[in-house]
């Protein structure tokens, strides 16, 4: 019994150690030493898919929390409008679209990264954003209106660092030079737009199809009533 307890305790300790090293220490290391960090990320396979997915999940949760608990001064959301599915789709959608777009561009541009690595890189890039959103959530409940510049600063810093990580991530993962990286990012943006356009087109077509079928269905049912 005692030994079992010890074992469980050890497991818990191990888990927290894993969380600390992999989810806090390593991404922070990447932020401070982006080239070295992403080198370890790719070459020494420090990155883990589980951690990447965990980051995406945390991002979703933080987004939902900030929707509801951001201070009233910066938050004009109505809790009644909160839709967890939308928040989920928002985060997952952006990650998926960026991953696919970047992969499709870099395969053309001779990138060395594969889809899994790109996905993990994008997920790791949410690290600063998660911190910024969480800290912003606390700050917005403490700061007065004329001090809200601090809140804006934190959020902007988070967004900037996310982009910074993404930039170096692309350089390291695809083994690019600076110019090539910039070009790839521009191409990725265009690819994202194309993907979104295709999605919209698809949805529109689908809606029309649905509308057509529904109209026929209604027409028939109404006729039956007569």
């Amino acid at each position: 019994m005692n030994e079992k307890m010890k074992l469980v305790g050890q497991k818990i300790k191990q888990f927290f150690k894993f969380v600390y090293t992999e989810m806090i220490k390593f991404p922070a290391y990447i932020l401070i030493h982006p080239l070295k960090g992403f080198d370890e990320f790719k070459r020494y396979k420090r990155a883990k898919l589980s951690v990447a997915i965990a980051f995406a999940v945390i991002m979703i949760i933080v987004n939902i929390l900030s929707f509801q608990y951001n201070g009233f001064l910066v938050n004009d959301n109505d809790v009644q409008d909160l839709n967890t599915f939308t928040q989920l789709a928002y985060v997952v959608g952006i990650i998926a679209v960026v991953t696919v777009a970047n992969w499709s561009v870099t395969t053309l541009f001779d990138g060395k990264g594969n889809m899994k690595e790109i996905f993990m890189m994008v997920c790791y890039c949410t690290y600063p954003l998660i911190w910024a959103t969480s800290i912003g959530m606390i700050l917005s409940n403490v700061l007065a209106e004329d001090e809200m510049a601090l809140y804006t600063l934190v959020i902007a810093l988070g967004a900037f660092l996310t982009f910074y990580m993404f930039f170096f991530g692309i350089i390291s993962i695809h083994e690019y030079g600076l110019l090539q990286c910039v070009l790839t990012i521009l191409a990725t943006v265009i690819a994202v737009m194309i993907v979104i356009f295709a999605c919209l087109l698809f949805f529109d077509l689908f809606q029309r199809m649905y509308g057509f079928v529904y109209t026929i269905y209604r027409e028939i049912t109404l006729r039956d009533l007569l």
Binding site: F72, L73, V142, A144, E145, D146
Partner: peptide, 18 residues
């Protein structure tokens, strides 16, 4: 002020409260 969705007055009251 929150019920009335008035952020200007809410900010003033909040500052005093804090």
């Amino acid at each position: 002020f929150k019920l009335g969705a008035d952020r200007v007055y809410y900010g003033k009251a909040f500052k005093q409260y804090r």
